Structures are given as C-alpha cells and as structure tokens.
Simulated assay, not measured.
Amino acid sequence: MNHIHPLSMVSPYIRIAHDFHTADNMRIGPTRIVDHALHYFKEGEGEYMVGTRRMIIRPGSLFLIRPAVTFSFSANPGTRFHMYNLHFDLIEQNDSASVPSPYPKQGEPQRSPLPYSLPDDLQMPAAGLPSSIPLIETATYEQLFLRILQRFGQTNTIALLQSKSAMLELLALLWRQTENQNASDSSEGAYERDLAQAVSYIHSRLHESITLDDVARAAQMSKSHLLKCFRHVYRLSPIKYVMKQRIERAKIELLYTNKPIKTIADETGFASIHSFYHSFQREVGTSPGAYRSLVHSSATAEVE
C-alpha cells in the first residue's frame, strides 16, 4: 500500500504575521504553543532555549518551534528585539480558523489532536529542519515574510493564495539552506564555521564597500579556498553573493518604504546611483523606479 507523505499535502494556514519591536529586557516562557512558529530576530541579541538546548540570538537568527515543544527566550539586559513572527499550521485543518491564539490560557483545553508537526533533524537527520536554522539568505527571507505580512488579514481568494504561495516559498528556502548546510557538513564540514563568519561579515556590511580580500580575512581563509568553498555551498562566488543580497535588500526597501532611490542605493552599498541603476536593471530586468511602480500598482489592484 502506498502512503502519501504529509509534506505532499502542505497547504499552510497562517495564524499570525507580526512585525514588532519588543520592550527592553523582554522575556518569554518557558511556554508551549499549539501550532508552529518561526521567530526571526532582525535586530537584538539574547538567549533562546528549545527544550534543554540553549542557543545564542544574534541579528538574522531564526528559530522554528513545533506544537507542544517547550521554549523560552530573553533579550540581553538593557536591550530589545526587532522580530518578524509567523504562526502557522502546516496543513490547514477543520479547526485552524477557530483557534484564536497559539498560546492556550491556563485551564483551557489543549488543542486536540495537535496538528501535523514538521519533522526535525533528530527524527530525520537527512531531511528534517533543526530548531535553529542557519539562515543565509536573510534578505530573501525578509522579503517573503513581508509579502505574507502585506496580505495577512485579507480574505479575498487572490490574497489567500498568494499568502500560501509565499509561505511555501519560505519553507522551501529553509529546506534548501538546511540541505546545503548538511551537504557541507558531510563533505567538507571543516570550513562550515569559516563560511558562516564570511556570510555574517557580508550581511553586516552590505552598506559598505566589500572586497574578496575583506571576506577572506573575515573567514580566515585564503582567497582561492574561500572561492572554492563558497561556490560549493552557495553556487555563487562571494562577490556575486554580495550583489545578490544587495539587490534583494534594495527590492525590500523599494517595496516597503518610501525612501528616495538614491538613499536606497547608498544604504545597500552601491558606489553611485548610476551603478545601482545599472546593476538593478541587469539583475531584475527593470529599473528601480519601474520596479517600485509596478509592484505598488499590482498591490493596489489586489486590494481593489
């Protein structure tokens, strides 16, 4: 008898999409939820615990919480977080819309049965997702989250389908990056930490000039070894990766802010607005202004 894998039936129900700044010294838990959560820390540092596993929160950290799994997190003293939060059922169920909050109040009955849970890397070492996901393409993740946030709460068919589509893209991104990480662990895991340092360096300095020498120094690798390892894991050279992340960051700014195009060019590390226009046109196929107008007009049409 053939069994259908639950992941082939995925049709996410998004319960919460939340972009918010916390108060100073924020602390959550220990607690449990009745759905899945993705906690992305855009800014801030602190400590996160899933079960008995203690992890460090840094800008760009992403944590996946499963139903009924105990977790907690806290900001470092005197600091706060800027978070992107998603709560969702992986497969929409009969009770999905009737669960008002993922946090059951004391004395309330637990959701039963709990929804299908994403496999973790302990259950499925070759195919599961870890609780702390090594997010590399932070700009791409942020763009997908903001696409979901923009449509969250809309009940028209187009918006619902686009939200589900963006959520599926986001999950596919997490699986792809986890598989790449697993491949590097099994083949040449010795350079994993060095590459993580290189990527962290890139993302923290997208607004500055970045050279191959700079990235190699941050990774403590020779340029030739860095190129080989980087291409093996990310299928791009470090400099092309920098360009991709700058363009993705610029697309977010064009879509979700009213900043002047010159300001966006400066903040994403382009030497001049002319360089920005040329690179954007080459990578996206249209100018920054045309991209902003096209996306905004599409969003307006969806609302109408």
Rank of each mutant, 00 (worst) to 15 (best):
F63W: 01
F230M: 05
T263S: 13
V295R: 08
N94T: 15
D24N: 15
H274T: 10
E108P: 04
V50G: 00
L255S: 15
T268S: 07
P125L: 03
Y13R: 08
V295C: 10
L122C: 13
R80D: 10
I56P: 05
P113S: 06
M49K: 12
A17T: 01
P113H: 08
V215D: 01
P238N: 06
F71R: 00
E43L: 07
S112Y: 13
K262G: 01
A183F: 12
L206C: 07
R147L: 12
H225Q: 10
Q177V: 10
Y103W: 11
H5C: 07
I4R: 15
S8T: 13
L90W: 02
S187A: 14
D89I: 04
I158E: 14
K244S: 08
H207S: 13
P30L: 06
R54S: 10
I56S: 15
V284P: 02
S297N: 11
R27E: 07
Y277T: 08
D185A: 14
L90E: 02
K251A: 06
L38I: 12
F280Q: 01
G189K: 05
V215M: 04
G189I: 04
H82L: 07
A172K: 11
V295Q: 11
Y277W: 10
C229D: 02
P77D: 04
I33F: 04
H274S: 12
H278F: 13
S72Q: 08
S131H: 11
A299V: 11
H278V: 10
E142G: 01
T211D: 05
M243N: 03
T211I: 05
S186F: 08
Y234P: 00
I158T: 15
S209G: 06
V99R: 06
K228L: 15
T286W: 05
S96C: 11
S101H: 13
R15S: 10
S98C: 09
A190C: 12
G285Q: 09
G269Y: 00
Y256M: 07
L171Q: 01
P130W: 04
H39Y: 14
S287F: 07
R111V: 13
I33S: 03
I136Y: 09
M243F: 03
H232K: 10
L170G: 00
Y234K: 02
R249K: 15
E304F: 13
I56A: 14
L7A: 10
N2E: 15
A126D: 15
A17Q: 03
K240E: 15
I148W: 02
